[in-house]
Structures are given as C-alpha cells and as structure tokens.
Nucleic acid binder design. Structure first.
Lengths: 330, 330
DNA sequence: TTGTAAGCGTTATCAT
DNA sequence: ATGATAACGCTTACAA
C-alpha cells in the first residue's frame, strides 16, 4: 500500500514539541499560542504532515462523511432522478466540508448486499445517512439506522415514518396533470408507470375525474427504453389515446421518441406529461411538460435536515411543493 | 451523536472469548474452528455487534473506500458526463465491495477548497483515488496523490502523465465528425466548444480539411443553456452555417432546441453532432448523432486500474476507442 | 501555554 | 485453536 506517511509523533519530534501541541494547532478546541500554531502549520505544509483520518475519527468517535443510500431502479443507465438529488446534496455539503459516500443498492437485492449496506451504517463509517425510499431495501436501512441511533433522513415516503423525511406529494402532482388534460378536453388517457406506484396513478385518476377502467394503465419499468416500449403497448391497446402521463421524464422522452417515429404528432395527437422535471426536459424537443419535484432542492433540504439531526435537533418532516410545468409536449 | 455501540471487548466478554477470537471470526485471515466462528457470527447478529470501521482501518492501515475527484464545470445542472462515468464506477465497485467517496470541486476553485481535497487524499481516508482531468485542480490533485504514493488513476489527459490513466482520443473523435460533414458536402462548419479544448477543435478542423479561419468557433461553457445561447451567436455571425460540432451533448441539445424554435430544420438546414454520447442522446428527437466515448465503460476501466494499482501491479495507460454514432440529427 | 499519558476499537504477533 | 497484548495515530483530561 501507500508509502507510510509522517505521523504526529514523528512530526512533533522533528519540531521539538509534543503531539498534543500539534493536535491543538489543527483543532480549534485547545488553547495554544498563535505563534506556535503558525509555526506548526507552516512546518506541516513543509513536511507534508496531515492527520490520519481514521485515527482522528476513532479518537473523536465521529466522522464528517454522510452516507447516501439509494435503490437502483434501472441498471441500463444513470438515474437522473438520483443524480439531480445528488447534485443538490453535493452543493450543500461542500459548504459544510462534509463529504458524501454513495451507496447504490439494486432495487431487488440480495440479503447479502443489503447487509453490506447495513454494515456501513452500523460500523460508524458515516456520521449520518440519507436514504432514498422506494424499495424494500430502503425500509430495512431506515430501520437499521433508527435502531442504531444513527442520524438519518429519508427522501420520499416510507411506511411508518413521521419525522426526518423530506417528502413530495406525488398524488397531488399527478392530479395536476390529470386536471390539465381534462381541461384541454382530452378524454382517452393512459398512464405509464414504472412499477406499482399507486399514488401517481391515483392522483392522475382523481385529476382526470374518471374511473379507473376508463384509463389505460401499464407498468413498464423506468428509463428511455421502457418509455419507447410502452408506446407500442399503449398504441396497440388503445389506438385512440390522446393524452398520457409518464412516471418519470425519461419514460416520457422514450415514449415521444417512439411516437414521433410513428408519425404521431406531439402534442396534437397525443399530449404527454412527464414526472420529476429533470434538467434535460426543458431542452427536449418538444419541450417536455412535467410535474416538477425540484429535485436538487430536495437534496439540499435533506442535507439541512441531516445536519440538524446530527446536532440533536428535532427534524419535522418537510413537504416539498410540486407543480406542473407546462411546455410544448402537452 | 449516535448511541455508543457495543465494542469488540464488550462483545467478546459476553461470549466468554477473547477479542482476538472475535476478530478472527470476522476476518478470513487467522485460523479458527468453524464451530466457534459460527457461534460468534450468530451472536453478533443477535447482539448487533459490528466492527467499528475507523478502528479497523487504523489497525489495518487500509480502507476500502475509493475517492472520486472531478471538476464541476457547470454549476447549473448535474454533469451527465460525470454521472455516466460514476455509473460505471459504482457498477464495478459494488462487485468488489468497495465504496465510493465523491469529491466534486469547482472548476476554478480557491486554494482552500483544493486543499480540502488534498487533505482527503493525504489523510488516508481513501485507499486510492480516481481523478477526472480537465482543470487546474485535477493536476494539483494528481500531483499530491503521486507524491504521497497514494494509488491513483486519471480519467482523461493531463500534462506529464504516462501511466495510470484511461484516456480517450478527443481529437480523433472530432476528426470523425469533421470527416463526416465533409463527406455529406457541408461546407459552412461551426464548432461550439465548452472551454478552450484545443484537441476537439483541432480534430474537427483536420477532419473537415479546412483551415481554421473557414470555421466559426465559439466557446460558451457547457450545458443546455450554453448550447441555446451559442445558437444565437452562430446564426448571427454565420447565417449560412450548415453543420456544427458541439463539445458535449447537452450543448448540442440546447442548440437544436433553439434552432428548431427558429424554424430551422435539423438536419436539413443544419446537421449537428454532439460529443460523449450520453444516454439521453439516443432518445432525443431527432436522435442526436454523437462522438461516443463509452463513458460508463471508462468508469469501469478506471476501477479495474485502481484495483491493480492498489495491488502494486503496473498500470499502463488505457486508450478507449471512440467512434461516431450517427443518428437523425446529422 | 505546553507536556504526559490514557484512551478510542480494532488487528496481528506472540505465546500457550 | 485460542488468549494476552502491543501496536495503529490521534485527541483530550490532567498535570505542570
């Protein structure tokens, strides 16, 4: 492994001071004269001394890394939902000099994989964890964090959680979309879900003010390809379809892509609305209408909460407003 | 902070064995009877014992986390180039039970921010680092890693690096695009760069077989918006433009989006080619032609190399082939 | 203000 | 196969 670095003992020895003094120079805590501190700091950069982080963490019983756990729902391509959240996470984290440890786990993962994640939570490698809801694993990790008293924040909905979450109202967002379709007199709706996420479907139905059997529903997984495939299904089962809500933006893009290849006009023939409003949506052609979740803000909120939580302050659940961003696709 | 967990000492005490035995049960290394190991493992899950990672790392002088350092070149939105690489990184890393620590740093960042990154490298928090080239900071971090003998791998080109890198030939990729435009008889080319990346520009010129003054060149930063803005510039300065190469895909998408809003037909009026071939490109409408870099494969390669490197094996630089993926936009 | 020394929770080297 | 015990490199009472 890497060449052994200079330790505090060796470093202190060279300077003719004690290790305690060196430590004080680097930590605001202890008292130390400005002069010696400056001297030590200078020498440190000169000799390349840098405290070993493991020793430090062990001694302090603390760490400045935050764990980020999320289910991987599409093994083909990056998850833009997650990436947008992570973008917010990193932005905020940098300002407080904390660093992110990322821990993806397959949506349907083995007990073993999950255990690895649990270890990471239990082993003290992180001072707090941020967990994205949406799979069985998320629940398990939430429970480990909770029972081990590791500070945690959940992004999304999880059964039996009341505090420490930042949530968004998918049902409401979807109802906005249904509402809109109803107002522009579209009457042959389809819903393309990723998995069984009843909230979006239900919201859509509510907004549409139709009964469930008047709407074509299919669940096809997430991602561009899923959206393209879903188009085939929809057009076959319900050729008269004139509006569709997709469970996320990549699905919508894939759908539109396939539809246009079939000479179907968007939005004239079919109006489509996506979900999440990831960045590319506004530059898609046609501009993709989408239920905006302000994902990077969610990430920043999550950091805000975990910091509080690590600080022992109470963390009531935050509810993020979501709204419908209308662009050309609808 | 989190409620103190059970330590090896306490745990061993309860079982009536020594700490050494407990340690052996969890580590393949030492000899131990299958029976006691099983007993200890069972009791561990029962009592919730889990080794403290800091103590472990300190004792072992080792860690299983890999640092990932990259410059943030667009503060508005996630960087899909990076995300795609990270996707590959995570995929490969999971199979070897290593975890990723992500460390974004602003492209033009303060000495202070950079120092924080250097600390992370020097403090032993990572067993190896993967650094994305592309900014001054990258160079600095590369040098710290090298001089501290921390295993490293560079993604991209860095002055004075010979080994330990996974590189892609931007110049060649761009020349492919130029080549193609020449073959389809486009004669009013524009190049939209992010920053001054002379390789792509030069390659484009070479492929086009024109001199630099016959091509409109603008550098506008990365991202969708930059691409849309660049369109305005290009169309104003060179209304006869009929083909353009963009330094990355989001720029190209933004460009196309703006162009179509101006009733310009893609590819009839202007053929456009992007760079990187991120996932969304193939579902963009029109399908975006792009110089493919196989980013997630690059990520996987980088992991492969860092593992070797950490293992003391030599790591000759890998060159990733790039090729032109033609879709509807050109 | 500075030094001494006792932890922090493991692993690993000796013995046994 | 198992048990003592000395590291690992730092922080932090406590003493000086």
């Amino acid at each position: 492994m890497s060449q052994r670095k200079i330790t505090i003992k060796e470093f202190a020895g060279k300077l003719g001071v004690s290790t305690a003094t060196v430590s004080r120079a680097f930590n605001t805590r202890g008292r130390i004269s400005a002069k010696t501190r400056q001297y030590i700091l200078n020498k440190a950069t000169e000799l390349g001394y840098c405290a070993n982080v493991h020793a430090k963490n062990l001694s302090r019983q603390d760490t400045s890394t935050i764990g980020f756990f999320y289910p991987v729902i599409n093994s083909e391509e990056p998850d833009y939902f997650i990436d947008e959240i992570m973008f917010g996470l990193n932005n905020r984290l940098q300002k407080v000099a904390k660093t992110l440890q990322v821990n993806p786990f397959p949506e349907f993962c083995s007990e073993e994989t999950l255990n690895l994640c649990r270890q990471k939570i239990l082993s003290g490698s992180t001072g707090g964890v941020i967990i994205v809801a949406g799979s069985k694993g998320s629940k398990v990790l939430f429970e480990t964090a909770k029972s081990a008293a590791v500070p945690y924040v959940i992004i999304g909905h999880l059964l039996g959680i009341e505090n420490n979450a930042v949530q968004f109202d998918n049902e409401h967002g979807a109802s906005l979309a249904g509402n809109y379709f109803r107002k522009i007199n579209r009457s042959h709706p389809a819903y393309i879900g990723g998995h069984l996420d009843s909230a979006k479907k239900q919201g859509f139905i509510n907004g549409l003010k139709v009964s469930e059997d008047q709407i074509f529903i299919t669940h096809c997984g997430y991602g561009f390809r899923a959206g393209a495939d879903a188009f085939q299904k929809v057009i076959k089962s319900m050729p008269e379809v004139d509006c569709v809500l997709c469970a996320n933006d990549p699905i919508a893009m894939g759908f539109i892509s396939a539809a246009q290849a079939h000479n179907i006009k968007i939005p004239e023939d079919i109006a489509v609305i996506g979900f999440d409003d990831i960045r590319p949506s506004r530059f898609f052609v046609p501009g993709l209408s989408s239920v905006s979740l302000r994902l990077s803000m969610i990430g920043m909120q999550a950091v805000e909460m975990i910091l509080k939580n690590m600080n022992g302050e109470p963390c009531p659940t935050q509810h993020i407003e979501c709204d419908l961003v209308l662009r050309e696709s609808s």
